[in-house]
Write a protein that binds this DNA or RNA. Structure first.
Lengths: 187, 187
DNA sequence: CTGAAATTTCAATAATTCTTGAAATTTCGC
DNA sequence: GCGAAATTTCAAGAATTATTGAAATTTCAG
């Protein structure tokens, strides 16, 4: 096996094991990694063959990737077959992942906390009071994180953090590619 | 069941279901939530009884929580039994979770990318070239995220982001508790 | 319209992850 | 030190989650 195939295989495997960390199923993450290693778009037959997946698994994975806006779906004229390619606007991709995860992970916590705190206010025991104050601390913290994410989603955070500063710092560590745009996947 | 017990139960359940999202096992997250609802420290017998867990499960959960610095462990004098209480310095807690997750999730990606890219440079096919440039984009992006996390871990990020601005924003949404410190768990 | 191609669904199964509990080890009060 | 109390370990089993594949549905080229 040449380096290209061996790197592709390792990349697919790494992505598959990392996917669950950011809320993406292993198979969907592997499909995304595999698409990234291809120059051309791929149809489901090719994905099935390339990753040894069943037809249904490919369909599920592609739907998941589409929900995350991680792939673009298209059709060739004169054919009814869909083909897939990895999304290239990484900023949009990151924005979407952050937004979806916020909805799934943080919003329900805030919602519950805001329902529970008043109920504990009714109770008069000292235990309820301490518990309530702890939940209030949590609410403040989660609310703060939430505000940061909101700012990021509105497009403001990166510049407010001082994007240039960070980019410089990250490039200083690796000056070789300093002219390459970060937020677009090289095509 | 009174409001206190019912809120406690819901909180334990919510934490248990959210834990996996931030890399903590369901049981460990439930133990943490349960400890948060208690005024006093708890020993393993009490945790077993309170959450209907086996002795071994409690031991595993507490070790995990200790690794994350989410609980403090102590001993009463004249007894050989450990007792546990939730960590109250939330900033330290967040810092630790971020650091451990960075090590587990981001560092291996960067490491691999930096090994793969030179190998693709050797290959001469156009496919290898495009794949290589995509991996380079990823490396830049992950490297940027990494720099941000590093800054946060060194204590600088929050102030650079403009902590006050964010805190104000988050408090504007919820003015009632504006005098409460955010980064310490109310005891 | 028709019907073959393509996609999606979902119950069954496979794979993975979590939990248990008895045995092994460690810890200290005595 | 001794030995009972406490904790930890880890293989087996339970619970959860992911994957399959055949059947149902949808989609269009002709």
């Amino acid at each position: 096996m040449n380096d290209f195939d061996s790197v592709r295989e390792s990349f697919v495997q790494l992505w598959g094991s990392m996917g669950p960390f950011w809320g993406i199923s292993p198979t969907a993450a592997r499909v995304y990694a595999w698409l990234m290693s291809r120059t051309e778009v791929a149809d489901s037959e090719e994905i099935m063959a390339g990753l040894e997946l069943s037809r249904g698994a490919v369909s599920m994975a592609c739907r998941e990737l589409r929900d995350w806006h991680l792939i673009d779906v298209g059709k060739s004229p004169g054919s009814r077959r869909s083909h897939y390619s990895p999304a290239t606007d990484l900023e949009k991709v990151v924005r979407n992942i952050v937004q979806i995860r916020k909805r799934r992970e943080w919003d329900p916590i805030l919602e519950h906390l805001r329902e529970w705190i008043p109920r504990l206010e009714e109770e008069e025991s000292p235990d309820a009071e301490i518990f309530r104050r702890r939940l209030e601390s949590l609410e403040s913290l989660v609310g703060l994180a939430d505000s940061m994410v909101e700012m990021f989603l509105k497009g403001g955070l990166l510049s407010k953090v001082g994007l240039k500063l960070l980019v410089d710092a990250s490039r200083a560590a690796n000056p070789k590619r300093s002219s390459q745009p970060i937020f677009e996947l090289a095509v």
